[in-house]
Design a protein around this nucleic acid. Structure first.
Length: 240
DNA sequence: TAGGCCATCTGGTCCT
DNA sequence: AGGACCAGATGGCCTA
Protein backbone atom coordinates (compact mmCIF):
# COMPACT_ATOMS: atom_id res chain seq x y z
CA UNK A 1 0.00 0.00 0.00
CA UNK A 2 1.07 3.52 -0.60
CA UNK A 3 2.95 4.96 2.32
CA UNK A 4 0.59 7.88 2.33
CA UNK A 5 -2.34 5.70 3.16
CA UNK A 6 -1.66 6.22 6.83
CA UNK A 7 -1.52 9.97 6.62
CA UNK A 8 -3.65 11.71 9.14
CA UNK A 9 -6.69 13.79 8.55
CA UNK A 10 -8.03 16.58 10.64
CA UNK A 11 -11.40 14.98 10.47
CA UNK A 12 -12.48 11.45 11.12
CA UNK A 13 -15.25 11.41 8.60
CA UNK A 14 -14.75 8.09 6.87
CA UNK A 15 -17.55 5.58 6.98
CA UNK A 16 -17.10 2.19 8.53
CA UNK A 17 -13.68 1.04 7.47
CA UNK A 18 -12.05 -2.27 6.90
CA UNK A 19 -9.30 -2.97 9.41
CA UNK A 20 -5.57 -3.02 8.80
CA UNK A 21 -4.12 -2.38 5.40
CA UNK A 22 -7.53 -1.60 3.94
CA UNK A 23 -8.60 0.79 6.64
CA UNK A 24 -9.43 3.55 4.17
CA UNK A 25 -11.81 1.40 2.20
CA UNK A 26 -15.29 0.97 3.58
CA UNK A 27 -16.81 -2.50 3.49
CA UNK A 28 -19.99 -1.16 2.00
CA UNK A 29 -18.18 0.72 -0.73
CA UNK A 30 -16.02 -2.23 -1.59
CA UNK A 31 -19.01 -4.54 -1.88
CA UNK A 32 -20.65 -2.03 -4.20
CA UNK A 33 -17.46 -1.74 -6.14
CA UNK A 34 -17.14 -5.50 -6.57
CA UNK A 35 -20.71 -5.75 -7.82
CA UNK A 36 -20.09 -2.99 -10.33
CA UNK A 37 -16.91 -4.64 -11.52
CA UNK A 38 -18.72 -7.92 -12.04
CA UNK A 39 -21.49 -6.25 -14.02
CA UNK A 40 -19.11 -4.20 -16.08
CA UNK A 41 -16.89 -7.12 -16.90
CA UNK A 42 -19.92 -9.00 -18.11
CA UNK A 43 -21.15 -6.13 -20.25
CA UNK A 44 -17.87 -5.44 -21.88
CA UNK A 45 -16.89 -9.02 -22.44
CA UNK A 46 -14.70 -9.34 -25.51
CA UNK A 47 -14.93 -5.66 -26.40
CA UNK A 48 -11.36 -4.51 -25.85
CA UNK A 49 -8.03 -5.87 -24.89
CA UNK A 50 -7.98 -3.42 -22.03
CA UNK A 51 -11.25 -4.75 -20.67
CA UNK A 52 -9.99 -8.25 -21.05
CA UNK A 53 -6.90 -7.55 -19.03
CA UNK A 54 -9.02 -5.99 -16.35
CA UNK A 55 -11.22 -9.02 -16.19
CA UNK A 56 -8.16 -11.06 -15.54
CA UNK A 57 -7.48 -9.14 -12.37
CA UNK A 58 -8.37 -11.00 -9.26
CA UNK A 59 -10.58 -9.55 -6.61
CA UNK A 60 -7.54 -8.81 -4.50
CA UNK A 61 -5.81 -7.11 -7.39
CA UNK A 62 -8.79 -4.89 -7.97
CA UNK A 63 -8.95 -4.14 -4.29
CA UNK A 64 -5.27 -3.22 -4.19
CA UNK A 65 -5.63 -1.10 -7.27
CA UNK A 66 -8.55 0.76 -5.75
CA UNK A 67 -6.63 1.35 -2.55
CA UNK A 68 -3.71 2.67 -4.52
CA UNK A 69 -5.85 5.06 -6.51
CA UNK A 70 -7.66 6.21 -3.39
CA UNK A 71 -4.37 6.80 -1.65
CA UNK A 72 -3.07 8.91 -4.49
CA UNK A 73 -6.23 10.94 -4.54
CA UNK A 74 -6.01 11.48 -0.79
CA UNK A 75 -2.43 12.62 -1.13
CA UNK A 76 -3.40 14.97 -3.90
CA UNK A 77 -6.12 16.49 -1.79
CA UNK A 78 -3.80 16.76 1.21
CA UNK A 79 -1.28 18.61 -0.95
CA UNK A 80 -4.03 20.90 -2.11
CA UNK A 81 -5.04 21.58 1.48
CA UNK A 82 -1.43 22.27 2.41
CA UNK A 83 -1.27 24.85 -0.33
CA UNK A 84 -4.51 26.29 0.97
CA UNK A 85 -2.99 26.54 4.46
CA UNK A 86 0.02 28.27 2.99
CA UNK A 87 -2.30 30.78 1.40
CA UNK A 88 -4.15 31.31 4.68
CA UNK A 89 -0.86 32.06 6.40
CA UNK A 90 -0.20 35.08 4.24
CA UNK A 91 -3.72 36.41 4.27
CA UNK A 92 -4.58 39.44 6.40
CA UNK A 93 -6.98 37.97 8.87
CA UNK A 94 -6.83 36.90 12.47
CA UNK A 95 -5.12 33.59 13.02
CA UNK A 96 -4.67 31.49 16.10
CA UNK A 97 -5.90 28.47 17.99
CA UNK A 98 -9.01 30.26 19.16
CA UNK A 99 -9.89 31.52 15.72
CA UNK A 100 -11.83 29.44 13.28
CA UNK A 101 -9.83 29.10 10.11
CA UNK A 102 -11.06 30.46 6.84
CA UNK A 103 -13.03 28.10 4.67
CA UNK A 104 -11.57 27.24 1.31
CA UNK A 105 -13.96 29.41 -0.62
CA UNK A 106 -13.41 32.32 1.78
CA UNK A 107 -9.66 31.90 1.46
CA UNK A 108 -9.82 32.06 -2.30
CA UNK A 109 -12.15 35.04 -2.36
CA UNK A 110 -10.11 36.91 0.21
CA UNK A 111 -6.92 36.16 -1.68
CA UNK A 112 -8.45 37.54 -4.83
CA UNK A 113 -9.59 40.71 -3.10
CA UNK A 114 -6.25 41.07 -1.36
CA UNK A 115 -4.39 40.86 -4.66
CA UNK A 116 -6.74 43.41 -6.19
CA UNK A 117 -6.24 45.72 -3.23
CA UNK A 118 -2.45 45.41 -3.41
CA UNK A 119 -2.53 46.08 -7.13
CA UNK A 120 -4.61 49.19 -6.59
CA UNK A 121 -2.35 50.39 -3.80
CA UNK A 122 0.67 49.84 -5.96
CA UNK A 123 -0.85 51.88 -8.76
CA UNK A 124 -1.72 54.64 -6.34
CA UNK A 125 1.78 54.68 -4.97
CA UNK A 126 3.30 54.72 -8.41
CA UNK A 127 1.22 57.78 -9.22
CA UNK A 128 2.20 59.48 -5.98
CA UNK A 129 5.85 58.67 -6.44
CA UNK A 130 5.88 59.94 -9.99
CA UNK A 131 4.08 63.10 -8.92
CA UNK A 132 6.48 63.74 -6.09
CA UNK A 133 9.60 62.75 -7.95
CA UNK A 134 8.51 64.91 -10.82
CA UNK A 135 9.32 67.93 -8.68
CA UNK A 136 11.85 65.83 -6.88
CA UNK A 137 14.32 66.31 -4.16
CA UNK A 138 17.64 65.68 -5.88
CA UNK A 139 19.55 64.34 -2.87
CA UNK A 140 16.79 62.06 -1.75
CA UNK A 141 16.24 60.79 -5.23
CA UNK A 142 19.86 59.86 -5.61
CA UNK A 143 19.79 57.76 -2.46
CA UNK A 144 16.38 56.15 -2.58
CA UNK A 145 15.04 56.16 -6.10
CA UNK A 146 17.99 54.30 -7.52
CA UNK A 147 17.20 51.30 -5.36
CA UNK A 148 13.57 51.31 -6.23
CA UNK A 149 10.49 53.28 -5.40
CA UNK A 150 10.32 54.14 -1.74
CA UNK A 151 6.59 54.36 -1.26
CA UNK A 152 5.40 57.27 0.79
CA UNK A 153 3.75 56.32 4.02
CA UNK A 154 0.62 58.12 3.00
CA UNK A 155 -0.11 55.10 0.90
CA UNK A 156 0.01 52.96 3.96
CA UNK A 157 -2.60 55.11 5.59
CA UNK A 158 -4.80 54.26 2.66
CA UNK A 159 -4.03 50.61 2.87
CA UNK A 160 -6.00 49.56 5.90
CA UNK A 161 -9.22 51.35 4.97
CA UNK A 162 -8.92 49.88 1.51
CA UNK A 163 -8.56 46.43 2.97
CA UNK A 164 -11.52 46.92 5.20
CA UNK A 165 -13.64 48.09 2.35
CA UNK A 166 -12.53 45.29 0.10
CA UNK A 167 -13.04 42.61 2.68
CA UNK A 168 -16.21 44.17 3.89
CA UNK A 169 -16.93 41.75 6.66
CA UNK A 170 -13.62 41.95 8.45
CA UNK A 171 -15.05 43.88 11.32
CA UNK A 172 -18.73 43.75 10.61
CA UNK A 173 -19.72 40.20 9.80
CA UNK A 174 -23.26 41.13 8.95
CA UNK A 175 -22.46 43.05 5.81
CA UNK A 176 -21.81 41.21 2.59
CA UNK A 177 -20.71 43.20 -0.39
CA UNK A 178 -20.14 41.44 -3.71
CA UNK A 179 -16.42 41.91 -3.17
CA UNK A 180 -16.52 40.38 0.24
CA UNK A 181 -15.84 36.79 1.11
CA UNK A 182 -18.40 34.90 3.16
CA UNK A 183 -18.37 36.13 6.68
CA UNK A 184 -18.21 32.83 8.51
CA UNK A 185 -14.46 32.78 8.97
CA UNK A 186 -13.86 36.37 9.88
CA UNK A 187 -13.26 37.52 13.39
CA UNK A 188 -10.95 40.45 13.09
CA UNK A 189 -8.53 42.04 10.72
CA UNK A 190 -4.78 41.73 10.95
CA UNK A 191 -2.92 44.04 8.62
CA UNK A 192 0.07 42.30 7.10
CA UNK A 193 2.37 45.24 7.54
CA UNK A 194 4.02 44.31 10.83
CA UNK A 195 4.92 40.88 9.62
CA UNK A 196 6.47 42.22 6.46
CA UNK A 197 8.44 44.88 8.22
CA UNK A 198 9.59 42.98 11.25
CA UNK A 199 12.94 41.92 9.81
CA UNK A 200 13.83 45.24 8.32
CA UNK A 201 16.80 46.97 9.89
CA UNK A 202 16.35 50.71 9.40
CA UNK A 203 20.05 51.35 9.53
CA UNK A 204 20.63 49.34 6.40
CA UNK A 205 19.17 51.93 4.12
CA UNK A 206 21.79 54.47 4.96
CA UNK A 207 24.60 52.34 3.66
CA UNK A 208 22.60 51.54 0.58
CA UNK A 209 21.85 47.90 1.29
CA UNK A 210 18.28 48.29 2.46
CA UNK A 211 15.88 46.48 0.21
CA UNK A 212 12.72 48.36 -0.56
CA UNK A 213 9.59 46.29 -0.39
CA UNK A 214 6.89 47.22 -2.86
CA UNK A 215 4.11 48.84 -0.91
CA UNK A 216 6.16 49.20 2.24
CA UNK A 217 7.24 52.50 3.75
CA UNK A 218 10.94 53.11 3.84
CA UNK A 219 12.06 52.98 7.48
CA UNK A 220 15.21 55.02 7.02
CA UNK A 221 15.61 58.37 8.71
CA UNK A 222 15.42 60.24 5.44
CA UNK A 223 12.06 58.77 4.66
CA UNK A 224 10.48 59.17 8.09
CA UNK A 225 7.70 61.72 8.37
CA UNK A 226 8.68 65.04 9.83
CA UNK A 227 5.80 65.02 12.23
CA UNK A 228 3.04 62.70 13.30
CA UNK A 229 0.37 65.05 12.03
CA UNK A 230 -0.71 65.16 8.47
CA UNK A 231 0.58 62.86 5.80
CA UNK A 232 4.06 61.50 5.74
CA UNK A 233 4.31 62.27 2.08
CA UNK A 234 6.29 65.31 3.23
CA UNK A 235 9.33 63.10 3.63
CA UNK A 236 9.52 62.90 -0.10
CA UNK A 237 8.70 66.48 -0.86
CA UNK A 238 11.14 69.16 -1.85
CA UNK A 239 10.30 71.02 1.34
CA UNK A 240 11.93 68.54 3.58
C1' DT B 1 -32.50 20.22 12.89
C1' DA B 2 -31.02 22.39 8.62
C1' DG B 3 -27.25 24.06 6.33
C1' DG B 4 -22.32 24.75 5.65
C1' DC B 5 -18.03 22.71 5.30
C1' DC B 6 -15.13 19.04 4.80
C1' DA B 7 -12.77 14.31 3.76
C1' DT B 8 -13.07 10.48 1.15
C1' DC B 9 -14.36 7.37 -2.55
C1' DT B 10 -15.27 6.81 -7.25
C1' DG B 11 -15.42 6.82 -12.33
C1' DG B 12 -14.43 9.48 -16.33
C1' DT B 13 -11.17 12.06 -19.08
C1' DC B 14 -6.84 13.73 -20.47
C1' DC B 15 -1.89 13.60 -20.61
C1' DT B 16 2.75 11.55 -20.67
C1' DA C 1 -0.53 1.78 -18.94
C1' DG C 2 -0.28 4.65 -15.27
C1' DG C 3 -0.92 8.92 -13.15
C1' DA C 4 -3.08 13.54 -12.60
C1' DC C 5 -7.09 16.04 -12.53
C1' DC C 6 -11.90 16.72 -12.01
C1' DA C 7 -16.65 16.50 -10.48
C1' DG C 8 -20.41 13.94 -8.32
C1' DA C 9 -21.91 11.25 -4.38
C1' DT C 10 -21.84 10.20 0.36
C1' DG C 11 -21.58 10.74 5.12
C1' DG C 12 -19.56 13.00 9.39
C1' DC C 13 -18.90 17.15 12.22
C1' DC C 14 -20.16 21.64 13.73
C1' DT C 15 -22.90 25.76 14.41
C1' DA C 16 -26.89 28.83 14.44
Amino acid sequence: MDSDAGSTSSRASSPELVEGATRFFSKKMFETYKQKQTLQSGDRQGKTEKAKSKRELTEDDLHDLRLKVNSRERKRMHDLNQAMDGLREVMPYAQGPSVRKLSKISTLLLARNYILMLSNSLEEMKKLVSDVYGAGHPNHLSRCASIGPAPPQVAMHHLTPSLHSLMGTATSPTSNSPQSPPSSGFVSFRPPIQGLLKDVNPSLHINGSYRHFPGMPCPCALCQPLSTSGTSISCLSVNK
